[in-house]
Design a protein around this nucleic acid. Structure first.
Lengths: 141, 141
DNA sequence: GTTGCACTTAAAGTCGACTTGAGGTCAAGC
DNA sequence: GCTTGACCTCAAGTCGACTTTAAGTGCAAC
């Protein structure tokens, strides 16, 4: 019961071009062709779901690729997940500080934000890199 | 008491090329030249600090540019800051859920993550887009 | 038997924020 | 007065994850 690429595309929500792209990157594997068309095992849907999760968790496609063992089942390093969770934790802290700073600036009575000490402190943090890597991602598309 | 571009670069930590780039994007303005070299008013350092802050807060350079009034002083829309703070808040929530999911998966006893219900739930959330835009940014350089 | 559509390939284009490279200019130090 | 080094301009290159384009193929329906 293999799935045509069109079916996989429909069920996963990803365009066929993306599936082919993932295949060239080694993230998924097709089990054969029917005519020209790639056929996939149904398990590819799980893999794609996993890829999607990896992406929102901040892994690059290369990193995600490494999480699939040399073939078939995922072999996700638990330490790696922990690391990523820790990184997320730090990021959450930074974002929290940033959010508080922005909230303050938004209701601060100083005529210019530059005259508000809290805002200036925030500016300095940003400049010293203390807040780096904290920015929300502008959605790629 | 204007500053040479080299001085601004040294004090801001940004390479001259970036300062020129910001100038072409309309984010900063030079007050003249000495020989070939751009000279900047000392206030440019404040502006750069503000730009850095804007960036970590997730604004694009274009958005940041719009925050400087047609000339000179910044005119930052307080509503806009609030909006961004709210967006950050949401993002923090998503990241928190993600972090918890990863932590769980990291110590979950299921032989494969695919067999862990919590992990699968997380995968589904990711696929439905509930977690989208949550990823930490891979630092651009 | 031919039309149409979804697929196929390979290569090139996109986005944002820069960085890098080639070729040129200028002020200061020796 | 010549070298050096930091700047100048303009164009092109980089990164990641795709998307788009052009030209071609094959199954299914009419």
């Amino acid at each position: 019961m293999d799935l045509d690429i069109g079916t996989v595309a429909a069920r996963s929500g990803l365009p066929p071009a993306t599936l082919r792209y993932y295949e060239t990157r080694g993230l998924i594997t097709s089990v054969g062709r029917r005519g020209l068309r790639r056929q996939y095992d149904a398990s590819v849907l799980d893999q794609l779901a996993l890829i999607a999760l990896g992406k929102v968790a901040g892994f690059s496609l290369d990193e995600i690729g490494q999480m699939f063992s040399t073939h078939g089942e995922p072999c996700i390093d638990r330490d790696r997940l922990s690391e990523r969770a820790d990184a997320l934790e730090e990021q959450i802290q930074r974002l929290g500080a940033l959010r508080d700073g922005l909230r303050h600036a938004a209701r601060c009575p100083a005529p210019s934000h530059l005259e508000c000490p809290t805002f200036r402190r925030l500016m300095q943090l940003a400049n010293r890199g203390k807040l780096r890597q904290a920015g929300p991602q502008h959605p790629p598309g």
